[in-house]
Design a protein around this nucleic acid. Structure first.
Length: 424
RNA sequence: GUGGGCGUAGCUCAGUUGGUUAGAGCGCCAGGUUGUGGUCCUGGAGGCCGCGGGUUCGACCCCCGUCGCUCACCCCA
């Protein structure tokens, strides 16, 4: 209990058997990304601080009080990435790949905040970005990928919330009217926003307190301020989603935490998660971000999803199945201590079987216990008798049928028997 | 950053109004005739009772502090 070192506050070690769920989740996502035409992008886990606070907004909570900022020995100021998008867009600007550039990623993300259920200082996100295009079909593709991925995970109680923030001018017009509305009703706002409403009026839309909700409910709504182009873009996204059979809820109050969002914004919430941390993914367009990071003024759209929350949502929906098989096929029990078993194990693995073996010269009984615990379907016994006769004893570990439970085969017949028994 | 709950073996937890060698179940290890797991039996290892201070003849138990875990607020994935 009193280990001298522990994982830092808000971080977690993920070990077996839990880690198999992670493997399966990531492998499933990688496969989806591949089938949707996204290629893997690996970017540094830390960046010059400007990469993040320029995009997500210098006054956002994440930038002001949640970033892990540090100086290296060259006194450059860096930050551990708090989210996935900014780095990929920075890489896009730096390398200028052909457009649309479609990339997927899986990465840790760091935010300095008090941990609680579904919220950590280091969490993990997987997501995609499609940069260099304004085509609403890309918005749709990103949302569809997320939706189908959630379905593949077995999640059923997921809702898609959708909104459009418009482009810069639409938003400016809206914010002006919203600001006036808030000023008029400022005495009715909650304690916090009664003093902070003017710094970032959009934040008030997110407030969950009744006071603010009341003020917002009879205030102006974002979608009413869209210009013709933005309205058409949004309509195109909604119409395609509808044709795809993906249900969405228009949520005019949905504004996400980062300033870079424009036009389409969306969030996926898992209703099975009872707590406040029920957002399992979100994203949207960020048409100004490339330019803010020094690149061309091209559009982009993406989404990110929290791995921990996806797994919590699965658990909350009672989904216990693994997404990938990580049980081993064969356990080799060796009581000779010479190289016969070692060579056999190597041979088995070369043929594609997942193989574990006994170590430390333990007794056969002891190794059989380990074999059973390993989950292997078969144990192969290598003892003096087998070696002398050039045979292998095969023992079924998952069968109660004693006739089938054990047999000895010649070493060169082993492969045939294994193919039958293991079906692979 | 603010507030609540909780820190006793690897895990889940007991521990009598503070009384001397701190317990259970599970797990782990080793045995239970001659090479065999899943059931059963026996034995064993493993705890500065989170850490520091205080009160007391005496503290796992009471008080203070501290660290950690956890939940909630805020915000987000």
């Amino acid at each position: 209990m009193s280990a001298s070192f522990r994982a830092p506050v808000g971080t977690h070690d993920v070990l077996a058997p839990q880690s198999a769920l992670w493997e399966g989740l990531i492998a499933t996502f990688a496969d989806f990304a591949y089938r949707y035409g996204f290629t893997l992008a690996l970017t540094p886990m830390f960046e010059e601080i400007g990469v993040f606070n320029r995009g997500i907004g210098e006054h956002s909570d994440v930038a002001t009080k949640e970033m892990y900022v540090f100086q290296d020995r060259g006194e450059r100021t860096y930050a551990l990435r708090p989210e996935g998008t900014a780095s990929v867009v920075r890489a896009f600007v730096q390398h200028q790949p052909t457009t649309p550039y479609k990339a997927w990623y899986v990465t840790p993300a760091f935010r300095y905040e008090r941990p609680q259920a579904g919220r950590y200082r280091q969490h993990h996100q997987l997501g995609v970005e499609a940069i260099g295009s304004d085509d609403p079909a890309l918005d749709v593709e990103v949302i569809t990928l997320a939706w189908r991925f959630y379905q593949a995970l077995g999640l059923t109680r997921i809702r898609l919330l959708l909104n459009s923030m418009g482009h810069v001018e639409c938003r400016a017009r809206y914010v002006a009217v919203l600001r006036a509305h808030l000023e008029e009703h400022r005495s009715q706002l909650c304690d916090e926003h009664a003093t902070t409403w003017s710094q970032n009026p959009l934040r008030v839309l997110d407030c969950k307190r009744d006071a603010c909700i009341g003020v917002i409910n009879d205030g102006p709504l974002l979608p009413d301020f869209l210009c013709a182009d933005c309205a058409a873009h949004f309509a195109a996204v909604r119409s395609a989603l509808s044709d795809l059979g993906i249900d969405s809820t228009l949520e005019p109050r949905l504004v996400r935490g980062f300033d870079y969002y424009t036009r389409t914004t969306f969030e996926f919430v898992a209703d099975a998660l009872g707590n406040a941390q029920n957002a399992i993914g979100g994203g949207g367009r960020y048409d100004g971000l490339s330019e803010q990071l020094g690149g061309k003024p091209v559009g982009g759209v993406g989404f990110g999803s929290g791995i921990e929350r996806l797994l919590l949502a699965r658990e909350a929906e009672g989904l216990t199945g693994n997404l990938i098989n990580r049980t081993i096929d064969i356990f080799v029990v060796d009581t000779t201590g010479d190289d016969v078993a070692t060579v056999l194990v190597d041979d088995l693995r070369a043929r594609g079987y997942a193989v574990e073996r006994g170590f430390d010269g333990r007794s056969m009984k002891s190794q059989m216990k380990v074999a059973d615990r390993s989950g292997a379907a078969l144990a192969l016994l290598v003892g003096p008798q087998e070696v002398a006769a050039d045979e292998i004893t095969i023992r079924e570990l998952r069968s109660d049928d004693f006739d089938r439970a054990q047999l000895r085969v010649a070493r060169d017949e082993l492969w045939t028997v294994l193919r039958e028994r293991l079906n692979k």
